[in-house]
Deep mutational scan, measured.
Amino acid sequence: KLCLVCSDEASGCHYGVLTCGSCKVFFKRAVEGQHNYLCAGRNDCIIDKIRRKNCPACRYRKCLQAGMNLEARKTK
């Protein structure tokens, strides 16, 4: 099974979405830290295992598009 954000090996369902541990922690920190990420490109950066750290804005956008939600952990 692959992470729906970066296509690395998924470690489980986190915040409602099948993700790897790295994307799970990234999403939690992004939401709780209330980061205002900005993409230096055109908001279409490739997010994969190798390049997932290059653009936090696009990675966060991809987390949201996949359906990640901090509240999902509280309902399970």
Rank of each mutant, 00 (worst) to 15 (best):
K1F: 14
K1W: 04
C3L: 00
C3I: 02
V5I: 12
V5Y: 02
C6R: 01
C6D: 00
C6I: 01
C6H: 02
C6W: 00
S7T: 11
S7C: 09
D8A: 14
A10Y: 04
A10T: 05
G12S: 08
G12I: 06
C13K: 11
C13T: 12
H14Y: 08
H14P: 04
H14N: 07
H14L: 06
Y15L: 05
Y15S: 06
G16D: 07
G16Q: 04
G16P: 04
V17S: 05
L18C: 06
L18P: 12
L18I: 14
L18S: 14
T19F: 03
T19I: 08
C20N: 01
G21N: 05
S22P: 08
K24V: 13
K24L: 05
V25M: 07
V25G: 13
V25A: 14
F26I: 02
F27A: 04
F27N: 01
F27R: 02
F27V: 03
K28Y: 12
R29V: 14
V31G: 10
V31Q: 11
V31W: 08
E32F: 04
Q34H: 05
Q34A: 11
N36H: 09
Y37L: 12
Y37G: 07
L38T: 10
L38G: 08
A40I: 10
A40F: 07
R42H: 11
N43S: 09
N43Q: 14
D44M: 12
D44E: 14
C45G: 01
C45L: 00
I46L: 09
I47E: 04
I47T: 06
D48S: 05
K49A: 14
K49Q: 10
I50V: 13
R51I: 05
R51L: 10
R52A: 09
R52C: 15
R52S: 06
K53F: 10
N54H: 13
C55A: 00
C55Y: 02
A57G: 08
C58W: 00
C58I: 01
R59A: 02
R59C: 03
Y60Q: 08
R61E: 14
C63E: 01
C63H: 01
C63M: 07
Q65L: 10
A66D: 03
G67Y: 04
G67L: 02
G67W: 02
M68W: 01
M68K: 02
N69G: 09
N69C: 15
E71V: 12
E71P: 09
E71N: 11
R73C: 11
R73A: 08
K74L: 15
K74F: 15
K74S: 09
K74V: 12
K74W: 11
T75I: 09
T75A: 14
